[in-house]
């Protein structure tokens, strides 16, 4: 039991940090531009595929740097030639544009790399067992993912709070006219922010693509859950995204590894339920099945009772 809890915590943390890498860019873009980027997970997928291509010519370390830059560049193009044009039609139009981009990017990935998963592998220099605990080994690459995610959080935080650029960015969001009047190019700041956010998604893709599997469905399987994280944590809040990522990572992981049904738990405390009536039927559903639904349920509940999310500053 103890080892299962320890490993669930480790696995949950890891999944949570991967979610955070993805969610941080999304929440930044929203917090700064008010744009909900539906295509965020698609940029994540692009990151993984670009890393695959780049690393097949050079190596993983080059890909780790170049792929996020390239994805960020694509993000900048998207903002400059797409979002900026529809900005005047309001946020719903921006949402719809990124929604359409999901279809375009996902199909372009199939067009370029095919439908079959690509063999994007963990670099040999990180492919070893870091330590063994209770007979289960902990691969070094997982530790590396955790390290990169934490480093990313610290870097973004310092960038926004401690630097002049960060101050201008934050000011541009709340008072664009004022910042513009001070001689800063606000549209360019928006482009940079969007590029930065999508670049972070690209970085998440580089890290997760070889840990999981790089295939055209990876964006779709990640997209909704990232939205959940961002909304749950509070749109625009970096700290909220971190907390929400970890909560959701841990909750889903524990639901899988604690494979008990509610009936088992009740039986453990001496309450028997028979499966015949409806309440009994519900109670016999495995926790692992409920686990998939939990994040969405949490999101709906928080939107109803606390629409600004865990740590959000304002409501949408």
């Amino acid at each position: 039991m103890l080892e299962s809890i320890v490993f669930s915590v480790l696995n949950g943390l890891l999944y949570g940090m991967l979610l955070f890498m993805l969610a941080s860019g999304l929440t930044l873009i929203f917090g700064m531009m008010g744009v909900l980027n539906f295509a965020h997970a698609s940029f994540y997928m692009l990151g993984a595929y670009c890393a695959y291509t780049i690393s097949s010519y050079t190596n993983f370390w080059v890909a780790l740097i170049l792929a996020p830059l390239f994805v960020g560049f694509l993000g900048a193009l998207t903002e400059r030639f797409g979002l900026r044009n529809v900005h005047k039609h309001g946020h719903v139009a921006e949402l719809l544009l990124t929604f359409g981009l999901v279809y375009v990017i996902d199909e372009l990935v199939v067009l370029i790399w095919g439908q079959i998963p690509v063999n994007y592998a963990i670099p040999p220099s990180l492919d070893f067992t870091l330590f063994t605990l209770f007979g289960t080994s902990f691969p070094a690459y997982r530790a590396f993912i955790l390290f990169v995610a934490v480093a990313m959080f610290v870097a973004i935080y310092l960038l926004l709070v401690r630097t002049r650029v960060g101050m201008i960015i934050r000011a541009a969001l709340s008072h664009p006219e004022m910042v513009g009047a001070l001689g800063h190019d606000v549209p360019r700041i928006f482009t940079l922010v969007f590029a930065f956010g999508t670049g972070l998604a690209g970085l998440a893709g580089v890290m997760a693509g070889n840990y999981y599997i790089t295939e055209p469905g990876m964006a779709f399987s990640m997209g909704p859950i990232v939205f959940v994280v961002v909304v749950f944590g509070g749109l625009g809040s970096l700290g909220g995204a971190l907390a929400a990522s970890l909560i959701i990572g841990l909750v889903t992981t524990f639901a899988v590894s604690l494979n008990y049904s509610v009936a088992d738990l009740l039986a453990a405390v001496g309450l028997g339920l028979d499966g015949e009536n409806i309440a009994g039927g519900l109670a016999h559903i495995d926790l692992s099945r409920i686990g998939q639904m939990l994040p969405y349920l949490m999101m709906v509940l928080i939107l109803i009772f606390r629409p600004r999310g865990l740590m959000g500053a304002r409501e949408s």
Partner: peptide, 18 residues
């Protein structure tokens, strides 16, 4: 386990392990 949706089987592996 759910079909085609699990990306990370390590929770299942630790379950087998324990």
């Amino acid at each position: 386990h759910p079909v085609g949706k699990v990306k990370d089987f390590s929770p299942y592996i630790s379950q087998i392990q324990s």
